[in-house]
Every structure is written in C-alpha cells, then in structure tokens.
Amino acid sequence: MNASGLSTRGRVIVLVAAVALLAAAGTVYILRARAVAPSPAAVPRNGAQAVPRQTTLPRGELVMVGAGASADSGMVVAVPPGGEGRPVSTGLRCKRFYAAAGTGVCLRVGATLTVGSEAIVLDERLREVRRVALAGIPSRARVSASGRMVAWTFFVSGDSYLSVGFSTRAGILDTRTGTLVKSLEDFTLEKDGRIHSPIDLNYWGVTFASDDNRFYATVSTSGRTYLVQGDFAKRRMRVLRENAECPSLSPDGTRVVYKKRVGGESDPWRLYRLDLASGRETKLAEDANVDDQAAWLDDRTVMYSKLRGDSSDVWTVPADGSGRPQVLMRDAFSPAST
C-alpha cells in the first residue's frame, strides 16, 4: 500500500478516535451534570415545580430530610407512621422542610452566587405555589396545623446559635391572603408592660396556634433569650418568660416544648415542657444536648434531631417528662408529622 493510502487511513483513525473521545467526554459531562443538578422536584417548569407523578405530600405519615452518607441525604422522604418501613423519596431537596394539612415549605440555599436562599411553598402534590427570596442559611421551618400559615428562620450572619454576634431573621407568610412579613422585627414587642425596641433584636423558631393568628417564637436581646407570644393580625408580641428557645406548641394548644440553656458551652441545651395555663415547667427525659426545634409526633410525644458524627438521627421522648429517648429514624433530621 502506498504512502497516500497510509495517510488516508491514518486520518480516518484519528477522526474516529477524536469522535470517540468527544463522545466519552460528553457522557462524562452529562453524568456529572446529573450528579450536581437539582432533583426534578426542585426545577421549576412553567412556573410550577415538576415532581414525579406518584409523589404527593402524605397524610398521616412523617416526612424528614435525609442526612449523613445515606442515598437520601438532603432529600425529603416520607416515612410510615412509627418510623417503620422503608422511606420513600419525594425527589425534593431541602435544607429544612416542614409540612401540615397539605402545605409544605422547603428552605433552600441558591445553587450559585447569583441565586440567593429561598423559601418555597408547596401544595399537597409538592407543586410550587409561591417562592420567597431570602438571605442567609436555613435554620427553622414551620407550617400551622391548618396549612395556612408558613414560617421560616434564616441565619443572616454566623451559622450557629453558639456563634458570637450571630443574627437571625424570621418571617411569616399567610398563604390564604398572601400577606408576607419578611422579618418579625417589624412587629411591636412588649416586655414588662412596656414597648421594647432595642437595636439588637433577633427572632427565630416560630410555632403557630390553631387559630392561625396567635404564634410563639424566640427573641434574643442583650444576651438573653425569651419566649414570646405573638398576634399576627395586630403585629404585636409580648414576652412570656426568659430562657426558652425554639418553641413548639402541642396539638391541643396547652403546652410548649422548647430548648433551655442549662449546660456548658459545648452542650448547652436541654428540652423542657411548659404548661401554658399553670406556668409549670418540666424537664423531659432527654439528658443529651438538643440543638433543634422539636416537633410533636402526637399529643403525648415530641421528636427532634440529635447530631451523630457527620450525620444526625431523629429521636422521640414522652412530653410529660417520663420514659426515655428512643430512636425514630437514623440518618435524618427536620421531622414533621403530616
């Protein structure tokens, strides 16, 4: 075969190799894009969230966010009652999630520097109904028992309640009227019978009463924390007691569970229950540090997450101070009973 023939064959071989190389590179690019791309439920389509057709917000079950090295890490999963059975993924990725009565709220951090954090309100089929642009790192999320009121807390500086000079911002959305309050700092605060308006107010950890108007939250000022009761319609709050953070109101509206600072710097918080009528406080049978806003599994039991190495687990404990803690779900956090 002459030199010209060899040259032609060489060019063909080079061309085939180049095509193969480009195809392989394209395949790697697609696989990597799939690995980092948001899940289908997180991608808006025509103004609504596209979700797997079989995915709905479960009723009478539990929802949590996966943690640690599990395949569901960062994904909202539905868990059968009692935590028994295999979790079912919703395809929705959130830093915090909560749901009640067919309404869900997903707190997320933007995928790029130009896309900030956001609270995404979802309907019972996990379709987006409203998106609120926010700033900071997601910390707490709540939905009222009726599904009407939605609340969130974001760190706007620092990333922990133990951080020096941390700052939080808590907001509330009335999904029925569309009324949005991006910061509870816009409300009037009453303390010791007088209007209290220092410049260092921080609010976090909202929980709602059954009337969708009254709520409870934490406020910090001058290095101290307080439990406050709020009136959404009147835009007013009043201090109830000191040293109570991240409250969670019981389904019957008579008790509040919160974390109370009683330990050292490395493990400061323990769970307590407050009877709203009598003012009597009871320590729950959880002796470990709990840096979470507890949720009520039912009228007798609360659930919360505790760190475990690079992961966290969801635990339960009786709300009356009896019993002992029990693991509800490994590698999970942000539990909600729907």
Results as ranks from 00 to 15, higher is better:
residue 190 E to G: 09
residue 190 E to W: 09
residue 190 E to N: 09
residue 190 E to A: 10
residue 190 E to R: 04
residue 191 K to C: 03
residue 191 K to M: 04
residue 191 K to D: 00
residue 192 D to N: 15
residue 192 D to A: 15
residue 192 D to Q: 12
residue 192 D to R: 12
residue 193 G to V: 08
residue 194 R to T: 14
residue 195 I to R: 00
residue 195 I to P: 04
residue 196 H to Y: 11
residue 196 H to E: 05
residue 197 S to D: 08
residue 197 S to M: 03
residue 198 P to T: 07
residue 199 I to C: 02
residue 199 I to L: 10
residue 199 I to V: 13
residue 199 I to F: 04
residue 199 I to E: 10
residue 200 D to R: 02
residue 200 D to G: 12
residue 200 D to N: 09
residue 202 N to L: 04
residue 203 Y to G: 08
residue 203 Y to M: 03
residue 204 W to I: 08
residue 204 W to H: 13
residue 206 V to L: 03
residue 206 V to N: 00
residue 206 V to A: 01
residue 206 V to C: 01
residue 207 T to S: 14
residue 207 T to P: 13
residue 208 F to P: 15
residue 208 F to S: 09
residue 209 A to W: 03
residue 209 A to T: 12
residue 209 A to L: 07
residue 209 A to Y: 05
residue 210 S to G: 15
residue 210 S to Q: 13
residue 212 D to Y: 01
residue 213 N to A: 03
residue 213 N to K: 00
residue 213 N to C: 10
residue 215 F to A: 02
residue 216 Y to N: 05
residue 217 A to K: 03
residue 217 A to H: 10
residue 219 V to F: 01
residue 219 V to P: 14
residue 219 V to H: 03
residue 219 V to E: 07
residue 219 V to M: 08
residue 220 S to F: 04
residue 220 S to C: 08
residue 221 T to V: 12
residue 221 T to C: 08
residue 223 G to L: 11
residue 224 R to H: 13
residue 225 T to G: 15
residue 225 T to A: 15
residue 225 T to I: 12
residue 226 Y to W: 06
residue 227 L to E: 08
residue 228 V to K: 02
residue 228 V to S: 06
residue 228 V to W: 02
residue 229 Q to L: 04
residue 229 Q to W: 01
residue 229 Q to P: 13
residue 230 G to M: 03
residue 230 G to A: 11
residue 230 G to H: 02
residue 231 D to K: 00
residue 231 D to P: 12
residue 232 F to Y: 09
residue 233 A to Q: 12
residue 233 A to V: 13
residue 234 K to S: 06
residue 234 K to R: 08
residue 234 K to P: 05
residue 234 K to A: 13
residue 234 K to V: 00
residue 235 R to P: 15
residue 236 R to A: 07
residue 238 R to P: 01
residue 238 R to Y: 00
residue 239 V to Q: 00
residue 240 L to G: 06
residue 240 L to N: 05
residue 241 R to C: 11
residue 242 E to H: 01
residue 243 N to K: 04
residue 243 N to F: 11
residue 243 N to D: 13
residue 243 N to I: 09
residue 244 A to G: 14
residue 244 A to V: 13
residue 245 E to W: 03
residue 246 C to L: 05
residue 247 P to Q: 01
residue 248 S to H: 00
residue 248 S to C: 04
residue 250 S to Y: 09
residue 250 S to Q: 07
residue 252 D to A: 09
residue 253 G to E: 03
residue 255 R to S: 14
residue 255 R to W: 05
residue 256 V to I: 15
residue 256 V to T: 07
residue 256 V to W: 02
residue 257 V to G: 12
residue 257 V to F: 07
residue 258 Y to R: 04
residue 260 K to P: 14
residue 261 R to W: 12
residue 261 R to M: 15
residue 262 V to F: 05
residue 262 V to T: 15
residue 262 V to L: 08
residue 263 G to N: 08
residue 264 G to Y: 06
residue 264 G to E: 06
residue 264 G to C: 11
residue 265 E to L: 12
residue 266 S to D: 14
residue 267 D to Y: 10
residue 267 D to H: 14
residue 267 D to T: 14
residue 268 P to C: 04
residue 269 W to K: 04
residue 269 W to L: 10
residue 269 W to C: 09
residue 269 W to I: 06
residue 270 R to M: 07
residue 271 L to Q: 05
residue 271 L to Y: 06
residue 272 Y to N: 10
residue 273 R to P: 15
residue 273 R to C: 15
residue 273 R to Y: 06
residue 273 R to I: 13
